[in-house]
Nucleic acid binder design. Structure first.
Lengths: 210, 210
DNA sequence: AGCGTCTGATCATCATACAATCTGGTCGCC
DNA sequence: GGCGACCAGATTGTATGATGATCAGACGCT
């Protein structure tokens, strides 16, 4: 199916199997994926809509690369949106969802203590957060942005010390939520994104420098 | 080209030439637009990515309809984003852009005084606002939401008295901007969206009732 | 009436073909 | 030798016809 192809390509791009800026030639993708050109084209169109590739007319599609300025803007938007997510969680989440958020944080802390990869657990944390907010539109918009900054996320998690710092920020979110303080939760979410953004931009700059 | 077809379809949907919920059959669109199935399919995929139509596998695509709950959520997100837009304008806009914002408001007021349609002028106002903020990512995200609520906008502008009220809210934005008060600008933008949302939801409820 | 089946409509995917466009290099001219 | 026109290859854009899959509803059987 096309969805399968699409997921494979998306994954490949996020995992840097295709370098940013690299041309994605339809014929090559055809023989690489085994599906027809029609399906490849439609998959590319969807990726373009997600912002993971950019299509230039009559020239082809290339893997999108985030400039420092774009990245900064994306983080700015995400900051505002995740602030809203935090606020909505405080306003709308059930008792069970509060508990689930706490559990998600504990899971992250446990993994981090072992030095295990923490990325999937963080995604779970955010799932709970958005779920509790009860705004699917918000969730899908953030998901759209998420794809575009995922390259940077890949970088920023490799920065030493960042996971520890990051968990502290998450704890601040949970604390504010448990205190039923919507404003504080919003600020905590905002700060978390901003901190991630700073690290991401630094990593980007370091990479461009080398 | 495909872009042409896409624009036509988008316009047709926004202008209610296709009723929400109506099935869009590929073959019909082929003979209606004169282009091939390939192009029609790709255009439909893009519209689906924008959220203007929903595609159900093996069943076809139907014109999207916004439920009251979805609309509420969309306005909630827009409120947060436009607050950011207002804040960024205060922080980043040039002197010339400040002046342009004032001019845009005056143009709206002049049109409204004559009872002329004010929608295009309002779009121009927002163009200036986002331009001055200097965050293209924000602009494109909002544009994406905009498409999905445009059906409601169509409704809410037909509510008597709304234009007048709306202009007052815009003036509040401009006042805050001229006072260089970023927080106030953010709040004013937020309030404007929320007010529009309330009217839109009322109009939606009234329509569903009849 | 209830149930399974069959049929028609429609989408999904594919293979192929051809035109339009871009890229890069070559050739001829100065 | 340098410069521009032109040509060939590559790639995308669009079109077309065919085939399989899937769904909704009609139909007939019990």
């Amino acid at each position: 199916m096309r969805a399968q192809v699409l997921d494979n390509l998306r994954q490949a791009i996020i995992e840097r199997q295709f370098a940013p800026g690299q041309r994605l030639i339809e014929r090559e993708l055809v023989e690489l994926t085994g599906v027809s050109r029609t399906s490849v084209r439609e998959a590319l169109r969807e990726l373009a809509a997600e912002g993971l590739v950019t299509a230039v007319p009559n020239k082809g599609t290339v893997v999108a690369s985030v400039s420092a300025e774009e990245a900064r803007q994306l983080y700015e938007v995400r900051s505002a949106l995740e602030a809203l997510a935090g606020r909505l969680f405080v306003q709308n989440a059930s008792q069970a969802q509060h508990a689930a958020l706490v559990r998600a944080l504990q899971r992250i802390e446990k993994l981090a203590a072992k030095g295990a990869p923490v990325l999937a657990a963080k995604d779970a944390f955010y799932d709970v957060l958005f779920e509790g907010g009860g705004n699917d539109a918000l969730r899908s918009v953030v998901a759209g942005l998420h794809a575009r900054v995922s390259l940077l996320r890949w970088l920023s998690l490799s920065v030493p010390g960042r996971p520890v710092e990051s968990i502290g920020e998450l704890r601040a979110i949970v604390d504010a939520v448990l205190a039923n303080d919507a404003d504080a939760a919003a600020r905590a979410c905002s700060r978390h994104v901003e901190a991630a953004g700073r690290v991401g931009l630094q990593a980007l700059a370091a990479q461009d420098g080398t």
